[in-house]
Design a protein around this nucleic acid. Structure first.
Lengths: 155, 155
DNA sequence: ATAAAGCATACCAAGTTGGTATTCTTTAAT
DNA sequence: ATTAAAGAATACCAACTTGGTATGCTTTAT
């Protein structure tokens, strides 16, 4: 069904929560409450975000998480790749070694093109646009002009 | 990992094979040979393509399949939807009834925007561009101008 | 009448995903 | 130094999806 995983979605949700107060440390439990996710699931999400370097963890008492960098510098592509690995619509796209039927196929270019554009789109959306109803138009413009990132924070 | 199913990929491959000789009826066995797919799998693909109205089946002896309409009128979106249903990156996108945590979320707009653009991209590529190395540029142009479909046949 | 073809259904193995539990390590506060 | 609050790491499991295969039925040109 060509959909992203729930964990990825949760990741975006938590990150956008963190983006509301970039300075303060938020604990796992509080984040779970704010987002409506279960505690174990939240933990799992936080681990992935930490591993990907998108959040900074402070261990020990009074610890917690905060964004590792400005929300405007965290794109949906970053998040998707953190949870699902490299973006590759088809196997051909991912590695050189192609699929089982590489010879007969030769569709790699087409899918590669789609894939490249998809990545561009995801890379251009950062952590504030997710709530922005005008995002489609701005994205279309962006793709056309090669504009810089669209921020997810300063709405 | 945000990838399309193999069957979808096979579908595109078979369709582009049919597009080479739009007039002639091709049998399942021949298509299996041409594409390197197994016969049962090919059958499965043909059923999906038939159900979606992308190919026309002629039953009985001397039967076979051919494209149901011009290759330039069959887009990747058509194929993807034939195999994977409506394109919806997140659950929110698909139906109105949202996900479990709709209240806390409010990310629907952002994902909806990405989703919409993805659909536009897929809709603009038809059955010939798949082998076209310049497809990325043409797509970017297309998104910007609202141009008509890019054909997959007349390369 | 017959054989060539598509149609329909059912089934199964394997991988992926989401979710949960348990235990260990770090560190601020006292 | 002790303690308790927090994150880190590991392991596990159930359920769903996917890809792949097999079998028998129906249509139709010859």
């Amino acid at each position: 069904m060509l959909k992203i995983g729930k964990l990825t979605d949760y990741g975006v949700l938590i990150l956008s929560t963190l983006a509301e107060q970039p300075a303060v440390l938020r604990q796992t439990e509080g984040l779970a409450e704010s987002t409506g996710l279960s505690l174990p699931t939240t933990r799992k999400v936080m681990k992935a975000l930490t591993d990907a370097g998108l959040v900074q963890a402070q261990r020990g008492a009074k610890g917690g998480y905060r964004l590792a960098r400005a929300a405007s510098m965290i794109s949906l592509r970053d998040v998707v790749e953190a949870f699902e690995g490299p973006i590759a619509l088809t196997e051909c796209t991912q590695d050189e070694h192609g699929c089982d039927i590489t010879e007969q196929c030769s569709l790699a270019d087409g899918w590669g093109g789609i894939n490249q554009l998809l990545m561009q789109m995801l890379a251009r959306v950062t952590l504030a646009d997710v709530k922005d109803p005008t995002i489609v138009d701005r994205l279309t413009q962006g793709l056309m002009m090669g504009s810089p990132r669209i921020s997810l924070v300063n709405l």
